[in-house]
Amino acid sequence: MARIKLKYVNQFANPDRADKRLRYYFRKRGHKAIPLPGTPGSEEFMAAYAMALAASSDAKIEIGEKKTSPGTIDALCVSYYRSAEWLALAEDTRDARRRLVEKFRAKHGTKRVHLIEEAHLVKIMNDIASLSSRRSWLKAIKHLLQHAVPTMRKNNPAANIAQVRLPKSKGHWTWTDDQIATYRTHWKLGTKQRLVFEFALETVSRRGEVVGFGPQHCYVGSEGERRIRIERTHGSGDVDIPMSDALAAAIDAMPVPTAINGIVPLTFLHTERGKMRSKKALGNDFAEWVKLAGLPDQCRLHGLKKGGMRRGAEAGLTSHELMGQSGHKSLAEVERYTKAANQRKLADSGAAKLRAAAAKGPKLITDQRGREESANAAYTNIETQLHKQGSK
């Protein structure tokens, strides 16, 4: 029987116990051992393992921590990485922000925090060529320096620097129905290319959610319907949604997963060694799959999320129904993703509703004869009323 091998997980069997049951612990050098419930691969086990892994990575000793001088940017970074604000960030956000903070720290780590002025920051920012890179840098440094208030300085020198404005853009291309059909025609059921496509489109998921998708997220509901639980990233809420027929067919057509070097892959997408694919690698691979299908380069993986939201809007789903599917926490985000909904279809749908409402109300008079008949009927009605009043 194949075993699931997970980093930092050790198993123990106590021969003196009657049940002889294996027990599992998360053990990482420099950290206290954490007991893990259930068995490897089970939902409760993997949830506990993920929490232990996240806690151990955030609690690690920073490089050079013992050599940092109090009051310096080095010391500020060490403190910031241990703050509640930092730990509350999504893992992807922390990774991106840490890269920017560490570049800033490498050049200015020994400088005193209380001596930093707004002009210094503006000069550093203006030396960054890309506007989008400037914007990301300023956001990261603002949060870093805000952590210095009020322990290292009285105010945040970056607080009044205006955010960098980027040129207006429509963002990622929204897939059209024709492009969706073209991709499906080229990549048949039973291929990972088709599975990635169906999952991203039908569940409006990002790359990070696609690479983590595995059999453990699928289950059968109380009424016998197939469903999916998805842990959303980037601040969106987790969702529990019905599985579409197209996605069910793509999953069922995939080969049965087998052990690789004694490890059973926990995700539908994995490397040759059985490990989960990286988001960057998936994005690059998908761009190549699109090209092989004869589609333009603008058809990217994130565009499928927008395409799925567009299809939902055109099918008549309300904004709240779309939120239940996507996990967005605000109507503004839903509206941003559904801007590409086919305006002609929506206009036709609205006109049909107006026609149906008009059919239930007073009949409209559309010709001259009808107007004359209506006027004569009104005159006759007035004559009748006057006659009744005169006879009293």
Rank of each mutant, 00 (worst) to 15 (best):
Gly237Ile: 13
Asn155Phe: 02
Ala48Asn: 10
Val101Ala: 03
Thr151Arg: 11
Lys66Phe: 03
Phe45Glu: 00
Pro296Glu: 04
Thr318Gly: 11
His387Ile: 10
Pro362Trp: 14
Val334Trp: 00
Gly361Val: 15
Met46Arg: 07
Tyr379Leu: 13
Leu138Ile: 10
Ser222Gly: 11
Ile180Tyr: 02
Leu317Ile: 08
Arg99Thr: 07
Glu333His: 04
Tyr49Ala: 14
Thr338His: 02
Ala200Met: 08
Ala75Trp: 00
Ala88Arg: 15
Val290Tyr: 02
Phe104Ala: 11
Leu36Glu: 01
His320Glu: 11
Tyr8Met: 03
Tyr81His: 06
Ile228Leu: 13
Ile382Glu: 05
Asp240Ala: 15
Arg165Ile: 07
Ile128Trp: 01
Leu295Asp: 14
Lys154Arg: 13
Phe213Cys: 02
Asn381Arg: 07
Ala200Glu: 01
Glu91Tyr: 01
Ala246Lys: 10
Arg344Lys: 06
Arg336Val: 10
Thr176Met: 11
Glu288Tyr: 05
Gly214Val: 06
Ser374Pro: 01
Gly208Glu: 04
Tyr219His: 06
Arg82Ser: 11
Gln325Asn: 11
Ala332Arg: 08
Pro362Gln: 07
Glu231His: 10
Met323Asn: 03
Ser222Tyr: 02
Tyr49Asp: 15
His108Trp: 07
Ala13Cys: 10
Asp285Ile: 15
Gly221Phe: 09
Asp19His: 07
Val220Asp: 08
Ala52His: 03
Ala158Gly: 03
Leu166His: 15
Lys392Ile: 05
Ala315Ser: 09
Leu295Ser: 06
Ala140Ile: 10
Arg232Asn: 04
His234Leu: 15
Asp285Cys: 03
Asn261Glu: 02
Thr185Asn: 12
Arg194Pro: 02
Glu102Gly: 04
Arg355His: 10
Leu166Phe: 08
Ser319Lys: 15
Thr185Glu: 14
His234Pro: 00
Tyr379Cys: 14
Glu62Val: 08
Arg105Leu: 08
Ser391Trp: 04
Ala106Gln: 14
Arg229Tyr: 07
Arg134Trp: 01
Leu331Thr: 15
Arg355Gln: 06
Arg207Asn: 05
Glu202Gln: 13
Ala162Ser: 11
Pro40Thr: 05
Gly307Trp: 01
Leu100Trp: 01
Lys170His: 08
Thr191Lys: 12
Gly30Arg: 13
